[in-house]
Design a protein around this nucleic acid. Structure first.
Lengths: 204, 204, 204, 204
DNA sequence: AATGAATGAGGATTCATTCAT
DNA sequence: TATGAATGAATCCTCATTCAT
């Protein structure tokens, strides 16, 4: 009776293989994530293979190109970042606090990720999906603040995105030597966004 | 006495060599400056040799390392930038105008210089001398504004330097697609610096 | 006795396995045949596995080496070619017609088979059996023509075999751009074989 | 008096360098020629570098691509082959003898050159210039024979070119084991070309 | 002092074959 | 027995730097 609907006790070999491969894939992404973060996007692919204890062939089976791997890693980092941020923001009642917290957390996290920050240079995110997700997160945060009259009325999500990008570079540059310095810049920027400033921003 | 004013008929070979060498050095720096600006610090050294119409040997005689050349170029760009900025600032009566003008000009100029902006990532200037020079320029601008009560009283030159760095990245990233976007960020940042914001900045 | 005609309700696993294996083997050969023909002997083995819907392991269980597979495919193609040719020839009364028909058909068929034509480069057939079979087919055709006094008396089967080989390369090289060109060369060669030419061929 | 117009006794360094580089270039081509001939176009570039006692960089300085090197080698071999053939043909009074001799020599030479023969598979010569040159040599030989009424009147240079190609493969395949066999095929083909055969060739 | 050719260690990617499930 | 993931040596090409002339 209790066995009804229970899938076959010894899981099919197919599954097992898949699980192993999936584990490898994860190991690769994990290693790549770490290595890219530490050394930037120019690292030797072999370093990633080594760290994930995987042969070159395996790596290239999962990611046909170094760049594919990089994009995958960045997408994942982006997504997890934004997903977390969304939850945290949703859990925060005060709109201003939500916005501030989002910046704090974002910058704290991206501090030591070279590849992530590098990626800002060429695009505005690793993929359209990520850009879209970021757009919606920023839109949410922005709207709440705007509705509460806390921000200049003409601030856009693009402004916020660029703010993150530029402050990320600050975090990266000062991280080791002056780990707290970027918070001053953040404060300055946030103060500049506040509705206390009434003059219109220039057209983009 | 008799030698005075005698331009030796066969001009001293030494001097000629020197002049030649100096000309070469200049050509290399000029070319490197352009190439680094266009393509970033990763360009092939041969491209620089080609553009300066100089052999590799000559290039390496003047600059024992690619990095030496890069540093020299950056130093020069830094210096000329800051020197000009100093003059312009001195010629501007209004302290606030001096500060904003400085940012405007700086960012406009560095927009298309990839290597220069890249260089912010690793250090806060190519050399201590440059850092010192920047320090004094920023100090000058800052002090005038502080004296006039235009800025938050706890803003530092380090803050200003990082602001330039962060906005430079914005300029670089948006330059092609949205050439005017960075001015919005600049306005936001400057507003955030103004003494209208009374709260103290966090300790660095 | 009682067992006769009884299709054992649970069909013997052994036999089923065998049948499956045989089916796989066929699928592999079929796919390999197509792929080798299209792309030559250098194709990735994975392409063959893919096209035969079989895993790499299965493929390598049946053929321990890529080359084994290639040889098997070539043997089969050789055999079927020669078997057909033998039948056609037997059904053709006129000896000369039989010979020319053989060449026509052979070359038409091998036109698009890259691996087959490539294979001529290294050996004179994929296996001794094939060589033997070809020998007998060519011998048959040759003898009938010789008996009828249609060919130079010192033409050998080796000559005919090499003629096929050489014309196959022509077919391959001109197939796409000048699909009819090889028939000119064939005519020339056949005319050169005819007994109209009385001079002896050089010793090999 | 005798010194007038004499270039500077010690040849300028520039020349020396050039000469050395030229020597290297020649060494590379020589080595590549040998290696390609022996092992075909798929050899490792390093083997060529090794045999020419040159670093990889030097090789790639002279030939930006493995294929460039191959093409250069083939062009050179083609050109020298055809140039020689042209001279020999011009020195041969009898048109038929000229044609025969051309085939003999050509096939004897290309016997052991794998890459050269391979090259026929994809194109009809390494470059348009070579094709043109071959066209003119073959045209010359052909016309003389046609004028003398020795060949079928509808034989074309394209027929001759394909004949060379196809017989080259024969030479290659039989070279080691039956070094004289190809001459039989050659004789057969030439006999097939002779005006003794009056039937028209099929349209191409 | 100038030239530019030479060097060779890397770096990304492929593919025949093996092996755990 | 079938599967397809894993392996890693091999391959083409680049580029900072050195060196003979």
């Amino acid at each position: 009776m209790t066995d009804v609907d229970q899938p076959a006790s010894p899981p099919p070999a197919r599954r097992a293989r898949r699980a192993d491969a999936e584990r490898n894939r994860h190991a690769i992404i994990e290693a790549a994530s770490a290595v890219f973060a530490e050394q930037g996007a120019t690292v030797d692919v072999r370093e990633i293979a080594r760290r994930s204890s995987v042969g070159m062939g395996t790596l290239y089976r999962h990611f046909p190109t170094k760049d594919d791997l990089l994009v995958t890693v960045l997408e994942q980092e982006f997504t997890s970042w934004l997903t977390n941020a969304l939850q945290t923001a949703a859990a925060t009642e005060d709109p201003w606090q939500a916005l501030t917290g989002f910046f704090e957390e974002t910058l704290t996290h991206q501090a030591c990720n070279r590849a992530l920050v590098e990626s800002y240079a060429t695009q505005d995110g690793p993929s359209p999906e990520c850009a879209q997700l970021r757009e919606s997160v920023l839109g949410e945060l922005l709207d709440r603040c705007l509705d509460a009259g806390l921000l200049r009325s003409d601030v856009t999500t693009a402004d916020l995105a660029l703010l993150i990008m530029s402050l990320s570079h600050v975090v990266q540059a000062t991280g080791e030597s002056h780990p707290a310095q970027w918070r001053r810049l953040l404060r300055i920027s946030l103060d500049g966004l506040s509705s206390r400033n009434t003059e219109a921003l220039p057209e983009s």
